[in-house]
Design a protein around this nucleic acid. Sequence first.
DNA 1: TTCATATTTGAACTCATTACAAATATTAAA
DNA 2: TTTAATATTTGTAATGAGTTCAAATATGAA
Lengths: 139, 139
Amino acid sequence: MNEIKKMLDNENIKPTYERLSILQYLEKNHNHPTVAMIYEELVKKIPTISKTTVYNSLNLFMEKGIVAPLYITGSEVRYDLSTSQHHHFLCEQCGKIYDLTIDCPYLNKNTIEGHQIKQKHGYFRGICKSCLEKDKSQK
Amino acid sequence: MNEIKKMLDNENIKPTYERLSILQYLEKNHNHPTVAMIYEELVKKIPTISKTTVYNSLNLFMEKGIVAPLYITGSEVRYDLSTSQHHHFLCEQCGKIYDLTIDCPYLNKNTIEGHQIKQKHGYFRGICKSCLEKDKSQK
DNA sequence: TTCATATTTGAACTCATTACAAATATTAAA
DNA sequence: TTTAATATTTGTAATGAGTTCAAATATGAA
Ligand SMILES: [Mn+2]
Ligand SMILES: [Mn+2]
Ligand SMILES: [Zn+2]
Ligand SMILES: [Zn+2]
């Protein structure tokens, strides 16, 4: 909770209960959630919270760079805390998004072929380890 | 035109005029277009063509693996001919998507941390070389 | 308290994509 | 060539994620 408040303070974002809750959700759940997932969970605790507030807050966090969007599925944005750079794996079967801890020679570059880099994204799609094992045992 | 017909034949896709035109557009324009861009261009030549046909055809091409979707912008899908694997750069200022010819140590892998890989995506966002130069001269 | 400002809320709206059924084209019997 | 079965295209309606916007609420200073 303290870490989270610091992140907001650093960016001069007023730490409202809603914003803190959203950021707290992202810190506790490393599941790269959708807006719907965040909202469905938070509304249990904050029955009055609005989906628009979730959108507003996440957009603000993205502008300030403390949250990063993942455009992977093609249907809706997934959100990730902007901690250290890492790659992702999307399972086409169960929909889960995994963090990958692989080396990438471009993570510390800030320019490429003359273009100025602001964000780097590396991701893979396929069938995850867990789904592969499930499929094998069922066959 | 012959190359294109072969691609469809290889996948047992009936080479209709609409499908050929869509694939031909992708072969001639390496601009990673949206459905709207493809439609707007083709409707000049084929006034009866439907946007749904563009969607249907591209979805079919993707299933067969001859076209690859790019989920980069977050707002709409961009399409690319599935030629050799390559990375992309999206300019946040002009919206253009560039092909990058950079080396990547993961392009020939088909499994990672136990997950089975079907698709690999690497892309960068920022300000493109052309926009940087324009900005500098205007300042 | 009073006023100004920031934040939240909910409803209306936008827009990309999909669903679906009717229209049209194609192909294979008969 | 007709006829019937199948594939493809088309247009409209529906879906759903995300945005817009104005009203409601909260915050904080004067
Ligand atoms: Mn992650
Ligand atoms: Mn490309
Ligand atoms: Zn899985
Ligand atoms: Zn540019």
